[in-house]
Amino acid sequence: MTSFNKSNLLHFGVLAGLVILFFILPTYHVGVLSRVMVMAIYAMGFNLLFGYTGLLSLGHAMFFAAGMYGFGLAIKFGGFPVPAAFVVGVLSAALLALVVGLLALRTAGVAFMIVTLMFAQTAYLVVLYFGKYTRGDEGFILQQAERSLFGLDVTTETGRYFTAFTLFAVCFIALAKLVQTPFGKRLVAIRENEERARMLGYDAGRYKLYALVISGAVSGLAGVSYALLFGYVGATFSTVQYSIFPLLWVLLGGAGTTIGPFIGVLFMFYLIDISSGYTNAYMLIAGVVLVLLTVFAPKGIAGTLKARVFPWMP
């Protein structure tokens, strides 16, 4: 079997597995998995920029929050129907990514990280400043009636799981295909050696901007999905912590692999789920994992598997 077929098989295997899990897992874990899939969309958006293009942003929470608030505010104050609000949410994240990209991509390396961190901090403070509409840290709830998607009730366990699954599947397959296209290959070329990519005639700056906009839009879509499926919109999701999480997930799962982000989120969710049974300082686990990863396994779970066992892995 060619590696192309093998990776297709892997992707559809994961999706099939997720469908089967719904029928065999108890309700609690079905709920956790819906959350994992939504956050995996976020991680995949981050992975496109960090894993494939080699740009480390420490401010992705602003895109997640832009999607979330674009969607939530459009419903709450604009009275938009859900599909239109969905589009508004994703577009506002993409627009924010475009503006941030035009400014921040003038810098590189450490400066890029700090600039994105600062922009995200500004975004967080702006959310707090307009607390009259955003309700600040407290956040606001979207009522059940405000969240029906084409007549489908997403508040039931089944509706939520399969909506999350559909969104996840679409992003998962689309991004896996995207990185196989010439466009995706160019992003990897920029990650590996930007000078050389430029010498070969590729407009590296433009490709980085495209990558950032797509990455921001996918992260925004994750924010929209979260607001849609769990009905909560709050400033917590724009804090620095939520910029760090996707980095953690992607590093843990394996940067620059298609399956890595999902594995990372799944692993981390259960790690925190189990450890929060013992202590309220569960972020300690996140810290220890981050340090151990950077020291011992900088390639993450999927990355290490790819390097050691399955060289065909996408």
Binding site: L56, I244, N280, A281, M283, L284, G287, L290, L293
Partner: peptide, 17 residues
């Protein structure tokens, strides 16, 4: 940067505990 972020959480959460 990633490692110091990890250190941040380790120190902060150990203090919390």
């Amino acid at each position: 940067i990633v490692a110091t972020i990890g250190m941040l959480y380790i120190i902060q959460q150990t203090t919390l505990m």
